[in-house]
Design a protein around this nucleic acid. Structure first.
Lengths: 222, 222
DNA sequence: TTATACCTGTCAGGTTGATGTCAGTTTCGG
DNA sequence: CCGAAACTGACATCAACCTGACAGGTATAA
């Protein structure tokens, strides 16, 4: 999961960054809404953790401008008790969730996980690709309406390829998706999973091509 | 059924929680609209029981902010006689039902059942699934017209599976439905209940498949 | 109160199956 | 044709899962 954290308190930001990194997520930190805005303009994230109380432009302003632009990025708001206006919930402003400081990091992580999951489940959780249909809710794969049983690792890998069609993925890119930070892995393990996945999806129009020395590339054939 | 109760009177809240728990529902209790708001942000419930008279943000405010966000969650309002002129606006604000204090717990339970039923859009509260028929009002199960006696836990689990046919449910998904907030559980407890449920419903066309490493998936066989 | 039945979680032992490793083979670029 | 990279069958390991047995708790009746 790739997260953008917008928080002006450096100590708190550091703890969060550490915690997320340790748990195998990519997290970037900016200290103001303006910087967040400019990063969001050209980079993709899975979610935004946003402090409301920021120097300059406030978190709420950033949020509402995002929503005005119909940006559906999941946003989790961090607020101090004092920031709460009894009448208006952060949710009314378009946040997907919020947490009142002080909070437990594990709580924050759990909320983020839930949010990412919810988001994935929301939008038409079927990815079609030639004669192959992947349903992320049921974790099932069909080829020509025939159900294929995949193991968890294969599902992860397939999902990655399907969301990165026609893009080069290095073995490390793949491994980073399959393994948590700190977990050891060998290139061969990735190859093995790939072999198994290929065997399962043979007969589909999805081809995972090897680019020798570089990585892999999935595309639809015919 | 999973219910969220928002009520600042601890004695009353306790009675309600007890009554609902005894009747096989999962019910969580919070004492303020703010807390309710925060829990609703990230957890799913089948309905909300909401006292209007709360310290801080009122029940009405919570309700209207929910509806502003197009949250269709069934809401049952609890009002004191003094608030009675508010009941018109309760329905206007998007409440689905209301009850004037003091009330009988059985009355409350009945209203909730009715509400949940209405929400499911069923004229009767029977779920049929192959040769298995589940009646959510009487909590009885029939297989080929033969009545099967299930224990409360098994009923909860069966109901969950029946309302989520052909969808993957992780052990955590299941546990969240079976256990109240804060209650501890082990994965094994879930497995045990499942073993017992499977034994009971063998002979039915409802199959609960294990998807190793992911969760469980219920579907109708043949 | 005591006795009884029942529900449900825990424990422990057994089974299964996913997955990483190894080793031998194949493929590809230079 | 050589060497490195990738492929893949076989295997071992270990976590996930299943389930019988048991025990603590609770409700019910005598």
């Amino acid at each position: 999961m790739r997260v953008l954290l917008t928080e002006d308190n450096e100590g708190l930001a550091n703890s969060i960054v550490h915690y997320f990194t340790d748990n195998g997520h990519a997290i970037d930190w900016v200290s103001s809404a303006e910087k967040a805005d400019s990063i969001l303009a050209h980079d993709e994230f899975d979610m935004l953790i946003l402090d409301v109380n920021l120097p300059g432009k406030s978190g709420f302003e950033l949020l509402s401008s995002l929503r005005l632009r119909k940006n559906p990025l999941p946003v989790l708001i961090l607020t101090a008790r004092a920031d709460i206006d009894g009448r208006v919930s952060a949710l009314d402003l378009g946040a997907d969730d919020y947490l009142v400081k002080p909070f437990d990091l594990r709580e924050l992580a759990a909320r983020c996980r839930a949010l990412a999951k919810r988001e994935r489940g929301k939008s038409d959780n079927e990815i079609q690709c030639g004669n192959l249909v992947f349903n992320s809710a049921t974790k099932t794969v069909k080829i020509d309406d025939e159900i294929i049983e995949l193991r968890p690792r294969e599902v992860q890998m397939l999902e990655l390829f399907l969301t990165h069609l026609d893009r080069m993925l290095t073995k490390d890119d793949i491994a980073n998706r399959l393994y948590n930070f700190g977990e050891a892995y060998t290139p061969n393990a990735v190859e093995q999973i790939l072999t198994r996945l290929r065997k399962q999806i043979q007969g589909s129009t999805l081809i995972i091509k090897t680019v020798r020395g570089m990585g892999y590339l999935a595309h639809v054939h015919d």
